[in-house]
């Protein structure tokens, strides 16, 4: 067969051609997938709409929990009473499932303001405020219990309610989505 002769005559060049063609086709195919995968990521409008939001704290009364949205995520802003702060602080941190002191969960000197994501860390339901054994939050879906610092104290949730990035612009205004630059 003609094939045999060519093969013997120029083995390396023939192999090189096949490998080069196969490699080029593979690279091309992989690159073609890229824009399609990229299109699945949050689009430019969504990203721009995810800009930090400012919240005016003046209308939030003591004991009140306000819900706001940032990037489509629910966020609780809780104006804690002195009693609730004390309850959050007087806890043996080592005994917690996800050990974290209350001071790590609020901004220094702003103990009355607790800002946490509003979805249970178990499977994402919205816990009810001022409810449960510790009067923090109680999740009606699977019975997770959170204290007044948003830490998990019972039920299936594995970790505390996470804290979104935020910072105080003034005493009565905070900006969610942006940590203080200093």
């Amino acid at each position: 067969m003609a094939e045999t002769t060519t093969h013997v005559a120029e083995p390396t060049r023939r192999d090189f051609l096949y490998i080069a063609t196969g490699a080029a086709a593979a690279v091309g195919g992989a690159t073609l997938v890229w824009p399609f995968i990229q299109s699945l990521a949050p689009d430019a409008a969504t990203k721009a709409a995810g800009a930090p939001v400012e919240v005016d704290l003046t209308p939030i009364a003591e004991g009140q929990i306000v819900k706001i949205f940032w990037r489509g995520n629910l966020i609780f802003i809780r104006h804690r009473s002195a009693q609730e702060i004390k309850a959050a602080q007087d806890v043996n941190v080592a005994s917690l499932r996800d050990p974290q002191a209350d001071s790590e969960r609020v901004k220094n000197g702003k103990d009355q303001w607790l800002v946490v994501y509003g979805n249970c860390t178990h499977l994402g339901c919205v816990p009810l405020g001022n409810a449960g054994e510790y009067n923090g939050w109680f999740c009606p879906c699977h019975g997770s219990v959170f204290d007044t610092s948003g830490r998990v104290r019972g039920g299936p949730a594995p970790i505390n309610l996470p804290i979104p990035p935020y910072s105080f612009v003034s005493d009565t205004k905070l900006i969610i989505g942006q940590e203080a630059t200093a």
Partner: peptide, 15 residues
Amino acid sequence: LAGLLYFTKKKIWAR
């Protein structure tokens, strides 16, 4: 890629 394929095709058809 088309160039590479062209020569690959020629090579194969040479058989």
